[in-house]
Simulated assay, not measured.
Amino acid sequence: MAADTAQGTGPRHVAIIMDGNGRWAQARGRPRLFGHHAGAKRVREVVDACPDLGVKYVTIFAFSTENWKRTQVEVAGLMSLFRRYIAKETRVLFEEGVRVRFIGDRVKLDAKLISLMDELERMTACNDRVHLTIALNYGGRDEVARATKRLAEDVAAGRLDPASVDEETLPKYLDTCVLPDPDLVIRTSGEARISNFLLWQSAYAEYEFIDTLWPDFTRDVFAGLVQNYGTRDRRFGSVKP
């Protein structure tokens, strides 16, 4: 789904690379997991702000396929945090009209976490106030590889004519097939890279790389970035007459 090209129009879908939790904690002499817990609280603030800012969809990068390389202690702590966050927030997200989806490969996740994810998706399936997508064990290249495999299986089974495959075909096999492409991608903490996040979907997204560490990311910071997006001239490869 294409974004509105008109100047002054706010983003419908915002994707966020939530970076800087560990550095935020270490600057305070605390373990990295302390920062992750602080960062988790910011998710609610961002989701709560979306309706007033005209943002219908928000996608957050919670755990990448590369994050398994971190220490066993940090990975185990993050998985525990995800389980507790989902268990704690399910009722609130449901009551506030938030629809939650998860994207990424669930194979490496533990059964308890997968069960909580499934229940949260099921419970909020009829909500439409805000669509929150959580990228968990997600990598853009991994997503494209999995999508391509499913596409190839359909071709091999005769369900898809290879001659009909074009750039509109692959998105139907992506984890995000029911979502519009992001209009704005935000990365916190001063890093200026996309880190394998929504590679296909962000082809025409606007980017904001900001120095703020994720636990310091406030509603006002979010609102300012959304407002700034409205000043950009989005031409999608065309030129003004």
Rank of each mutant, 00 (worst) to 15 (best):
R42V: 06
P31D: 08
G39W: 06
H36D: 04
D48S: 04
G22F: 11
V47H: 05
G39V: 12
A49G: 15
A25S: 13
V58G: 06
Q26G: 00
V46Y: 00
E45T: 15
N21R: 10
H37L: 13
K56H: 14
K41M: 09
H36G: 02
G22H: 11
G54S: 05
R30H: 10
G22R: 14
R30I: 01
R30P: 00
G54C: 07
R42W: 02
G39C: 12
G29R: 14
G22I: 10
R28E: 03
V58W: 08
V58E: 05
Q26I: 13
V43A: 12
A25P: 14
D48W: 00
P51F: 01
V55E: 05
R42L: 03
D48R: 00
V58I: 15
G54W: 07
P31H: 09
V46L: 13
C50N: 02
G39T: 09
V58Q: 06
V46Q: 02
A40P: 11
R28L: 08
V58H: 08
G35Q: 05
A40E: 11
Y57H: 14
V55A: 05
C50V: 03
V46R: 07
Q26A: 13
V58R: 09
V46S: 09
V47R: 04
P51A: 01
A25V: 14
G54P: 08
V43Q: 01
H37R: 15
V58Y: 07
R32W: 04
V43T: 13
G39L: 12
R23C: 11
H37T: 07
R42I: 02
H37I: 03
K41L: 14
